[in-house]
Nucleic acid binder design. Sequence first.
DNA 1: CACTACTGAATGAATAGTCATTCAGTATAA
DNA 2: TTATACTGAATGACTATTCATTCAGTAGTG
Lengths: 212, 212
Amino acid sequence: MPRGRSQDSSSSPTKSKAQKLERRSAIIEAAIDTFAQRGFHHARVSDVARQAGIADGTIYLYFKSKDDLLISLFEEKMEHIVETFRSEVSCYKTAQERLKCFLELHLKMVAERPALAEVMTVELRQSAKFMREYKAPQFGAYLALLGDIISYGQERGEVRSGIDPLLTRRIIFGALDELSLYWVSSKRPLHSLERVIEELWALCSTGCFIQK
Amino acid sequence: MPRGRSQDSSSSPTKSKAQKLERRSAIIEAAIDTFAQRGFHHARVSDVARQAGIADGTIYLYFKSKDDLLISLFEEKMEHIVETFRSEVSCYKTAQERLKCFLELHLKMVAERPALAEVMTVELRQSAKFMREYKAPQFGAYLALLGDIISYGQERGEVRSGIDPLLTRRIIFGALDELSLYWVSSKRPLHSLERVIEELWALCSTGCFIQK
DNA sequence: CACTACTGAATGAATAGTCATTCAGTATAA
DNA sequence: TTATACTGAATGACTATTCATTCAGTAGTG
């Protein structure tokens, strides 16, 4: 009969669940850096392993394949992003504030975690076919969140009723995504983050053209 | 000293320049279909060859490498697109008409040549790092054309002067690109092409929100 | 405590499969 | 016959994945 185990709730004798999760995370973080630097296809599994400070084979104890690593990375990070954004956005009352909040969160995340942004925008977009097969439920949730803001605005009478939330959420996402790519790609951005947000916000709220 | 050659300005005795260009084109068209279907990385050179009805090695008589084929494909198609768009757009006087024309041309091209659109949006975006090294001058020309429409609108007093053409061209391109991806990806699109154009045009001209 | 048996996480050399690319040979035209 | 275009089997480089082995740490025993 085993004595009381230190502070570990699992029955695993050698490695706690927390330690395992930590290592799993370490691999994901290493993958983000490596994929961002060399691109998914050019990055070797052994590069990720070296970056994580572990052996090649160890990655396969945590992920089924290199593809599975990419997908897990995307889904898990995206899930976290969706949760955060949803709760932040809901602090505001008006749809205008909510949309502005969303744009800011997206672009600030890009500025703060450029490697993650690079993987999520470039490397994954690249594999759109690949993602299509795996459905990318969290990407769907992200789009849905954006669409909900628009529908909410329509309910409140803030947003023109003629607008189709399904199309408009794509338009806004596309704009955000391209701005992110632009921001991440340029070594020394010509525009401040605030300026970028301002510009996109201006387009969303009033369009380009001077009203007659 | 060669006898008077039929209609061929080159000195090639066996194959006319026109025939060579035709075969080169055939390879590019085959590559578009193949890359669109399987994705650039998963497409084998031998797939492209089979699709073109030629032997694997023949491709290397026309292109340095598989990468070179992708880049040539992109640059040549894009060059043609830029020329066409530039001349079409310049038929209109106002910036509003010009912008609307541009949006229509882009989305109609996507609808007419989905495989080409797929390769240009998905497969190339994927290789953003790859393209960054190769500069993609024709992509720059495409963006410039869009930016020129905006600047032109500012000169004419149609477009708000506070707008930055460099940012706004990215925003609009991102929206177009995402809508293209959406259109190309959905087997049976929920929205008509006209509806998509209408929606993007509405956002560009007046934004989402009801003016107070 | 001291000893043995056991566990399973981690390793990394070896395997296995995939393709881009080459090139020796064939066909064709002049 | 010579130059050119083409062919497609063979090559060779690359790398994801596997798996026999190691070993640090835990449990059981007296």
